[in-house]
Design a protein around this nucleic acid. Structure first.
Length: 159
DNA sequence: GCCACCGGTGGC
DNA sequence: GCCACCGGTGGC
């Protein structure tokens, strides 16, 4: 697949730059064949549900028209497959007040209108996030480290 | 201790 | 009955 083709797929998916979506097919157990959808933020944080994503993004993002499974916006004309997806979660519930966690994405725009790196399968995902870097962390003055001295794991963190 | 993975279930 | 969400844990 050439770069242009890849680009088309990304545009089609419409996730923001740096975000990745991953489909993992369950291989065993009673739920074998079921697919789990995961999203990875640019800093490697993993999300496995829409509420989880919404909590991280905060209420500046409207995810009500975002279909978590497909990774696309639900257009008005789109058929709602089977079940109506009008579950009313309060996606801002539990929103952390730390503004430094809000991604550097234009908040007036849908976060899903930008290109994304497509990752289709579950090979070996090397992305690691530091679980200790939680939204509960208190904001503090950012000191930018010398990136040339950082290892891969450190670089994967949000900074 | 972490996390990928599957199970359980509440809400529809 | 379906499935989105998240709990729990086996394997590392």
């Amino acid at each position: 697949m050439d770069v242009l083709e890849k680009r088309k797929i990304q545009d089609c998916l419409g996730l923001p730059t740096g975000w990745k979506r991953e489909e993992v097919i369950r291989k065993s157990g009673l739920s074998a064949g079921k697919t789990d959808i995961y999203y990875f933020s640019p800093c490697g944080r993993k999300f496995r549900s829409k509420p989880q994503l919404a909590r991280f993004l905060g209420d500046s993002f409207d995810l009500s028209a975002f279909d978590f499974r497909s990774g696309k916006q639900l257009s008005v004309g789109a058929r709602k497959s089977k079940r109506l997806k009008n579950i009313q979660y309060d996606y801002s519930r539990g929103l952390k007040q730390d503004a430094s966690l809000v991604l550097p994405i234009r908040q007036t725009a849908s976060i899903f209108k930008q290109p994304v790196t497509l990752k289709t399968n579950h090979a070996q995902n090397r992305i690691k996030a530091d679980p200790k870097q939680d939204a509960k962390d208190v904001p503090k003055q950012v000191r930018y480290p010398d990136r040339s001295k950082m290892n891969v794991r450190q670089l994967a963190k949000c900074s």
